[in-house]
Amino acid sequence: MSKEENEIIVEVKNVRKSFGKLDVLKGVDIEVRKGEVVVILGPSGSGKTTLLRCLNFLEKADSGTLRIGDKSVDLKKVRKKEILELRRKTAFVFQNYNLFANKTALENVTQGLIKAQKVPKAEVKERGMQALEWVKLPEKAGSYPSQLSGGQQQRVGIARAVALCPDVILFDEPTSALDPELVGETLELIKKVAGTGITMIVVTHEMSFARDVADKVIFMDGGYVVEQGTPDEIFVNPKDDRTRQFLSRIIPPEYSI
């Protein structure tokens, strides 16, 4: 694919993070090219979510460097202003949606446009409605999150991320909290996001999604990146024992390729 020649838009080097005595990230390096869909796999506690949260400073990494686009920082001494600048290059889709409970679906989508991007008022609503139409929920524009189903909330969550037009969208297990019936439609929507050519980093346990959509799969365990490569490389010919072990447990033999 031509994405291999694209510029590297996200570059993480030697990122470390510990919570008290617990080392969660022990020196992680990843590179993401523009337009790539990168899926991060790994068992619970492997640090995938923490890594994702460090990328937009929901968690502050202890050390390492991070570059998004043309902005690069040393995570040890990053300043508040730089955090805001980098964060505004990203958007985040949460496992539990985290829609603003006191805002309607439309307001959820437009909040960041108004407050962070200072988009003119007349344009904001247009863009908000466009995003909601894109996720097929325009009729719920005036509804509050509590009036939406989990699947609908996550679609609003995705609309909120897409509307920001970020350099990269970070998905943190976007379907884990959904009931099985809704997982499919949400994954379809995420594929649709991928189809727009936006750069995405997705933490998920949906193996079929990883196989179908990912340009690159990263397998993490114990705070390290154990192995990375194309879906074929990871799923068909995993080199590392740990990857093989993980995949054999998560994909029942009769379904594996």
Partner: peptide, 10 residues
């Protein structure tokens, strides 16, 4: 809710 607020760049 804090996370979401920060994630949209506020």
């Amino acid at each position: 809710q804090f996370d979401a607020g920060r994630s949209v760049g506020m």
